[in-house]
Design a protein around this nucleic acid. Sequence first.
DNA 1: CTAGGTGCAAATAGTTTGCAACTAC
DNA 2: GTAGTTGCAAACTATTTGCACCTAG
Lengths: 127, 127
Amino acid sequence: MTAPRQLVLDAVRALGHATPEQVHVAVGRIAPGVNITTVYRTLELLEELGLVTHTHLSHGAPTYHAADDDQHVHLVCRGCGGIQELPPELLQPLASALRRQHGFLVDIGHVALFGRCGGCGSGEGDE
Amino acid sequence: MTAPRQLVLDAVRALGHATPEQVHVAVGRIAPGVNITTVYRTLELLEELGLVTHTHLSHGAPTYHAADDDQHVHLVCRGCGGIQELPPELLQPLASALRRQHGFLVDIGHVALFGRCGGCGSGEGDE
DNA sequence: CTAGGTGCAAATAGTTTGCAACTAC
DNA sequence: GTAGTTGCAAACTATTTGCACCTAG
């Protein structure tokens, strides 16, 4: 575990959610000169090691979070773009149903649900 | 509704799920020369009109499907990359709970759940 | 010396934009 | 002719790859 790697892991843990670019910025604050390439490579490595995982919230931007972090379900509002985190227990009933009926093991910490939050009843919504 | 637009809509309907590029290829089979740009622009337009919607399955590639198509929940297997479609009723209990408890209106046809399908108990998994 | 890790630049994929040509009223 | 639509090329963003360098054992 080298310095840049530790920094990337720390950044992911500190940020909670972060895109590779956000991680890069965070790391760069402490150790300027760390290349974005290294961030990508390190995130990939950390993911293989099971230390971080990533989820796809909204568009293409993947967000990484530490695996030892609390797992949570994401509610992404298409109106205001806000993201709510909810306890994963909410998914338990669904998860068991899927497992029983379809043999599918849902990765609960990796779920993003799209929709509208209370404040954004309707109207436009860009993702 | 011009010819290219009709073709894009037809392609989305015919393909069921498709990335913009797949739509482009499908359209090109019937009307070569239609530009990928037009596909993107048309998809955007059709989405505004409410005729199609898109979901993010796995990585960045968005998949479009016709809005009048049956809504369905996607189960994306991180092992084999396979995609299962399930009836949206599965989400009803969860959706009502979220609505009641969090005022959040889940877009049920827009859900992708990641995990492992029966055949891919464990092992690697590239998204 | 040897391997792994890193930075840099270039390549690639996916998507968007600017602009001129084209078509339908 | 005016507005909306399209194709093409170029711009952009996000990500990946090739390669030389550097450091630890």
